[in-house]
C-alpha cells in the first residue's frame, strides 16, 4: 500500500501517450500495451497503454467507453484483436486460468440466483475458485461479515434489496482472497447512504485488506473520493491516467457567489467588467480568472465591485479541478486543464 510515495511521484512525472503513468517495479498489477479490441467496424478499445498499481484505481468513462471490454480481456474471457496485456504477471490470452484464480470480479449486472441464500451460493463459488469445502465455509462467513450481510445471508437472495445484492456480489468477488478485484459499477442503483457504504468498503478493500482494486464508474465524483489513481477512457482510448490528486489541483480560478434583489449575479458581472475583470457565469456562481500579477488585490477589486453593484458578497472560493472536468474540455473555464493535458502529452 505505498500509495503516498507513488502519488508523490506522479506529480513530477510527465504523462506520455505511449507510457502513461508508469507504475514502478513489483507493484504493477495490470499492464497493457497497444491493447485493441474491434467488433467488426466498432472499436471498443483503441491501442490502450496503461499500467495499474496497488491501492484503488478508478476506471472512468461514459457507457461504451470500453471499461467492461477491458475487464473481460484482462480476465481472459475475450481475445484482444491486437496488443498485449499482463495481469499479475500472466498473459490473459494464454494463462487465463491462473489469472482467474488470483482475481475477483464483481459484474455490473444482476448475477444472483433468487432461490439460493447468499451463504450457500458464496460457499459454492468459493469452491469454484478452488477452496476446499471447509475453507470455503470459513471464508464465506468472513467476507459476508466484512461486507456487512448479517442474518439475511441465510435468506434466498431473491428477496434482497439492491444494496444487499451488491454486497453479496462483492462478497463473492472477495471470497477466495484475490490479489486483485475488478468491480464493475459497484454503486449502480444504490441510494446515497448505501452508495457511501459501498465506497467506504471499496476503499477499505484497497487499503486495509491489501487487495488491489480496479473500480469502474460513470459517476466521476465517486471515484474522486475513493481512488488513488484514475484512468479515464473515452471511446476506447486513454484520455488520461494519473493520481487522483492531480485532477484536483487548484486551477487559479475564483468562484464568486452574491445575493441581492433582481439579478444580482448579472449586476455583479457588469460591475466586475467595469473594474476590468471578465467573468463567466457558472450556475449561480461567477467564475473569474485573475489576470497574472494582480495577486491578492483581486479580492479588493471583487469587494469593491460588489459594493458598486449593491449586492451582498456570500463567498469567494478557489476553484479545484474535478475529474468531470477532463470530460468538459470545451468549457472555457477549463482551458487550464486542456493546457495541462497537452503539456503532459
Amino acid at each position: 500500500m505505498e500509495v503516498g510515495p507513488r502519488v508523490e511521484a506522479m506529480h513530477s512525472e510527465p504523462i506520455s501517450a505511449t507510457v502513461p503513468h508508469e507504475v514502478q517495479g513489483s507493484d504493477v498489477v495490470v499492464r497493457t500495451g497497444g491493447l485493441t479490441k474491434r467488433y467488426g467496424s466498432v472499436v471498443a478499445l483503441d491501442s490502450l497503454d496503461v499500467s495499474l498499481g496497488g491501492g484503488v484505481t478508478g476506471l472512468v468513462g461514459a457507457n461504451g467507453a470500453g471499461k467492461s471490454t477491458l475487464i473481460k480481456i484482462l480476465l481472459g474471457l475475450l481475445e484482444p484483436t491486437s496488443g498485449r496485456a499482463r495481469v499479475l504477471g500472466h498473459d490473459p490470452t494464454t494463462e487465463g486460468e491462473a489469472i482467474r484464480r488470483a482475481v475477483g470480479y464483481m459484474p455490473e449486472h444482476d448475477c444472483l440466483p433468487p432461490d439460493v441464500s447468499a451463504s450457500d451460493f458464496i460457499v459454492h463459488l468459493a469452491q469454484m475458485s478452488g477452496l476446499p469445502r471447509t475453507a470455503a465455509r470459513e471464508r464465506t462467513a468472513d467476507v459476508l461479515r466484512h461486507v456487512g450481510l448479517a442474518e439475511e445471508r441465510y435468506r434466498p437472495m431473491g428477496g434482497y434489496s439492491t444494496g444487499m445484492k451488491q454486497r453479496a456480489k462483492l462478497a463473492q468477488a472477495l471470497v477466495h482472497d484475490p490479489r486483485l478485484v475488478m468491480l464493475d459499477e459497484p454503486t449502480n442503483g444504490l441510494d446515497p447512504a448505501a452508495r457511501d457504504d459501498m465506497l467506504a468498503l471499496v476503499r477499505r478493500i484497497g487499503h486495509d485488506f491489501g487487495i488491489a482494486v480496479l473500480v469502474t464508474s460513470h459517476l466521476l465524483g465517486e471515484l474522486e473520493r475513493v481512488s488513488d489513481h484514475v484512468v479515464v477512457l473515452d471511446g476506447g482510448r486513454l484520455l488520461r491516467a494519473s493520481a487522483t490528486t492531480d485532477f484536483m489541483v487548484d486551477t487559479g480560478t475564483l468562484l464568486i457567489e452574491v445575493i441581492g434583489d433582481t439579478h444580482p449575479t448579472a449586476r455583479m458581472a457588469e460591475a466586475l467588467r467595469a473594474a476590468g475583470l471578465d467573468s463567466i457565469p457558472r450556475g449561480q456562481l461567477l467564475a473569474i480568472e485573475p489576470p497574472p500579477g494582480v495577486g491578492d488585490r483581486v479580492y479588493d477589486v471583487i469587494r469593491d465591485a460588489a459594493c458598486d453593484a449593491e449586492v451582498g458578497l456570500v463567498r469567494i472560493q478557489a476553484d479545484h479541478h474535478r475529474i468531470e472536468d477532463v470530460f468538459n474540455l470545451d468549457t472555457p473555464s477549463l482551458a487550464a486543464v486542456e493546457g495541462e493535458l497537452s503539456h503532459d502529452a
Binding site: L77, E97, V103, H109, C111, P113, L125, M128, G130
Partner: peptide
C-alpha cells in the same frame, strides 16, 4: 438455464474452470 437466466454464468466464467 438457471445460470444463463440469472447471469450467474459470469461468476463461473470469471473463475478458473473453462
Amino acid at each position: 438455464s438457471r445460470d444463463l437466466r440469472h447471469g450467474s454464468i459470469v461468476l463461473y466464467l470469471a473463475r478458473p474452470l473453462r
